[in-house]
Design a protein around this nucleic acid. Structure first.
Lengths: 235, 235
DNA sequence: TCTAATGTTAACGTTTGGTTAAACCTAATT
DNA sequence: AATTAGGTTTAACCAAACGTTAACATTAGA
């Protein structure tokens, strides 16, 4: 079977730089769609599936961060790389809680970009192929359907789960009987790691514990300073 | 089994440009029929089945939008790509709610066109092969005939459905007991995804729920932020 | 014993969905 | 040309769902 080229959405308003970059990427066997501004970028994003988005931050009408946020609403998985100005400080970037996979200061070495792209694709290949298909879990006497977002106890009436409840429980289930690091949930689900999101996560842990109460053999344990552990006592 | 070439209807009044484009597409293994104006385009469209239509917007006698509308009346599925003048604004295009799959500004990069075509064909290939032939559904005690657009309860008098009601219920039925994503309905039926079409869809969901009331085992559930689910409780 | 981490509940603001009715549009009819 | 009817969209209002934050309580571990 023929390997399909990876598809990249490149949003860059500088026509010269954009074209050069596009050509360079295409020379390296990527399919590249080039949008000239944030608006157009979002339109193109909606029209197709991409393996990676490369967004310039400084753009007229709609900056890269705003665009990234819109993209995230549609798709929580697709990797995003920001092209930023040299001057921008780390903390400014962190302020925009978007969940980028990488930042790159302009001007940058195209070799570096290529390596980053490869690394990101690799990462995605290993951690989503196996994961993404897993939507159903048996947790003690519960059945979690993560696609339809419900939790059934003993095959009875399903309880609806909110998106966050669902993702958190799914992540715990993926690590059943093992440590699910706090940080993992925060970066994967909240896409940010600070005091407040951490507290928010605790709130969701409390909610999940309530849901799981009916089965006394199932519990969510805390590992102080590390994370949580979904334990299922067999028998 | 021999793979059949995809068939493209190209409607373009500029003879030079049209011929060049036709040749280019044929070189890339598409079967292309070239019509020189809207009138002729519609004649050819009626005479055959096409996998894609590429329509120039600016044409004498019958412009591309008008032609597209006529095509849509005959066929709600076939993808349409418009070739537009550079000057045309997004919102002008949006005004013509025809349901295009893409727009392309002239002059354009032929590579881009080719990629768009591939993407569109791909999309169609994955989501209609199995679906498109199914027009009759049993939904609990209801029978939906999607071709004739009626809904029968217990084999009694059929209720007539409007086109939108019909397509929406059909799409739900195709995903019975599974998630039918909001976005899917919006892009497939409304061919646009914005606040208002989304609200319009909600209105139709309400209408369908009313129709389905007689059978208490049938319901349309909402999955917050995701879409809807047509559930049939067996027994 | 003292501090940082966690548990829990409730309040709040925001987004999304449910529903109804009016406005709008188009094609057919008068 | 005006009217009507069917279909669809838009508007408005309300309710439900969600996520975050604050506040206070409890616990773990240095």
């Amino acid at each position: 079977m023929e390997e399909q080229n990876k598809k990249i959405l490149l949003v860059e308003d500088d026509p010269n730089f954009g074209t050069v970059l596009k050509d360079y990427l295409m020379m390296n066997d990527y399919d590249v769609v080039h949008a000239k501004n944030g608006m157009e970028g979002f339109e193109k994003f909606k029209k197709d599936d991409y393996d990676l988005c490369i967004l310039d931050v400084m753009m007229p009408y709609k900056d890269g961060f705003t665009l990234a946020k819109e993209i995230r609403e549609k798709n929580t998985e697709v990797p995003i790389i920001f092209l930023t100005a040299k001057a921008m400080k780390e903390d400014v970037l962190k302020g925009y809680k978007v969940g980028a996979d990488d930042y790159l200061n302009k001007p940058f070495d195209s070799e570096v970009l290529l390596m980053k792209i490869k690394a990101i694709m690799q990462r995605k290949a290993t951690d989503t192929v196996a994961d993404s298909k897993q939507f159903e879990f048996k947790i003690g006497r519960f059945d979690l359907n993560s696609k339809l977002r419900f939790l059934k106890f003993d095959g009875g009436e399903p309880t609806k789960l909110s998106p966050k409840e669902n993702e958190l429980l799914r992540l715990l289930a993926l690590h059943e009987n093992d440590l699910m690091p706090r940080e993992l949930a925060l970066t994967k689900i909240w896409r940010d790691d600070n005091y407040f999101t951490s507290r928010s996560m605790d709130v969701y842990i409390a909610k999940l514990r309530k849901y799981l109460k009916p089965d006394t053999n199932v519990e969510i344990l805390n590992i102080h300073g590390e994370g949580f552990r979904l334990v299922v006592n067999n028998q």
